[in-house]
Amino acid sequence: MSADKVKSVKDDLVLQHKLFSLSRVWAIAFNTFTQLVRMKVFYFMLIFSVLIIGANFLFLNFTFEQELKILKDVSFGAMTLFASIFSIVGTALLIPKDIEDRTLYTILTKPVPRFEYLVGKLIGIIFLVAVSLVLMSFLFFAVLYFRQHGILAEEIKMIRGGATDAQKEYLKETIFAQGVRPELILGVLAVFLKAAVAAGVALVVSTFASSTLFTIIVSLVVYFIGHAQSLALEYYFPEGQIHGALQRFIAGIVAVVFPNLQMFNIFDGLITGQSISTTLMFRLIGLTGFYLTIYSMISWILFAKKEL
């Protein structure tokens, strides 16, 4: 081979290489998604269905408010649980596994920057969480819709001597107010945002942890402390109260280091009919984006020169 030819190889390589390629990120993200899907994670839908359909038959002699509330509570509880588990366990399962199995060698020895690998994994898992939440929401809204109509029919039947149109209208209004409402979608969105931040946490942890189990445990601890964040903040910035300096210092550290996941708990309010302002919703979305950006950055810093 002539000198010219080899020299041009170097130039080719420099020219052809893209510093950041969305298609590579997508390839990794989609691969992650496929992998999880083929691990049959969607079997959880069976459990979810049993849960929310079961919730319908448990408490039949209750008031309709209670019945619909329990249905919503069980569904949202299950959604929160599944979404958080998927994001944490999914991340913890896949990245350390890639390292342990040395699958990562074959990926990183392709022209793939490590940052793209991390972002791809994160997107893949978040995508899986999104798809599973969409599936759960479909089922949930269908059951809720079916239930609210069922309850309406029962209540109308219970009125002696037949209900007047005004009574029917009134019943419909009060029952449907506890049923399918667009605000509930925002509740699902908040569950998603929280799970996305949890995935970010697990991503950071998995870049320095050496095992799946360790990643899961550490991420779960961060997840729980993240929920008690507001308590820490109350200590740190008390309203009129003064706590010990040490306590405030510790609480401050907790608040600075751990994510605030309590922020995303808006379902409890939505279920009692509170409506959330668009500004607030966008704020939550923005903060999630902020968290994910910072967490990707930190994982990259930790991962960029990691000896594999």
Binding site: S230, L233, V256
Partner: peptide, 17 residues
């Protein structure tokens, strides 16, 4: 983020959450 989050918490409080 803490000031932003505290503000968000305040908004959440105001909106009954």
């Amino acid at each position: 983020r803490i000031p932003i989050e505290m503000n968000t918490e305040k908004m959440l409080k105001e909106q009954g959450f």
